[in-house]
Simulated assay, not measured.
Amino acid sequence: MQRTLILLKPDCVQRRLMGRMITRFEEKGLNFVAMKLIRITPELAKQHYAEHVSKGWYPTLESFVTGGPVLAAVVEGLEAIQVVRDMLGATSGLKAAPGTIRGDFSSSQQMNLVHGSDGPDAAKREIALYFKPEELIEDAPTLTKWLRAADE
């Protein structure tokens, strides 16, 4: 079982797409183990996007991500990191394949609705930025046995 962070960004929240995004992740069989509506501060944005702070386009990214509420969540499932990344599609909504979240709902590089951790190290670091260990719920839905074989 693997966990990853997802952020439903301000454009997703403002466009009233949160329910549709949550539904897509749940329909895929991912289990939500933490969720909260927050405002990302400039300090948190700098921690989250540390590798981008020195880039010329970072101020625009920070302004966007701090500009409205964000739904932060942790999902769990088999190969959850790659599953979420595949569901999101290419970073630019214009280049994302139809059927992906960004391909279906975005036409922007920056306003691309949802963030998903890009690997195990990033997932661990990002989850710790947004959630305390006691905020992560340990629970397997009763329908799990109908979503994957017992030996997976």
Rank of each mutant, 00 (worst) to 15 (best):
Q2C: 02
T4N: 06
T4H: 02
T4Y: 03
L5Y: 02
L5N: 07
I6P: 04
L7P: 00
L8G: 00
L8V: 10
P10F: 08
P10Y: 09
P10T: 11
V13A: 08
R16N: 15
L17E: 07
M18Y: 02
M21W: 01
M21H: 00
F25E: 05
E26D: 03
E27M: 04
K28C: 05
L30M: 05
V33K: 00
A34P: 04
R39M: 13
R39I: 02
T41D: 05
A45V: 06
K46N: 11
H48F: 10
H48C: 12
H48S: 08
A50D: 07
E51W: 10
H52A: 09
V53F: 03
S54K: 13
S54E: 14
K55C: 12
Y58A: 00
P59I: 13
P59Q: 07
P59V: 10
F64L: 01
T66L: 08
G67N: 08
G68S: 04
P69A: 10
L71F: 01
L71C: 07
A73P: 04
V74I: 05
E76L: 05
E76S: 00
G77T: 03
E79R: 15
I81F: 02
Q82P: 01
Q82F: 05
V84D: 11
R85Y: 03
M87F: 06
L88K: 01
A90P: 03
A90F: 09
A90S: 12
S92M: 10
G93N: 14
G93P: 13
A96H: 08
A96F: 06
A97V: 12
P98T: 15
G99S: 07
T100D: 09
I101C: 08
G103H: 07
S107W: 09
S107M: 13
S108I: 01
Q110M: 14
M111L: 14
L113S: 10
H115N: 12
D118I: 03
P120H: 06
D121N: 15
D121W: 11
A122D: 14
A122K: 02
E126D: 11
A128D: 07
A128G: 05
L129Q: 13
Y130Q: 00
F131G: 11
F131C: 08
K132N: 13
P133K: 01
E134K: 15
L136F: 09
L136S: 04
L143W: 15
W146L: 13
W146A: 10
A150D: 14
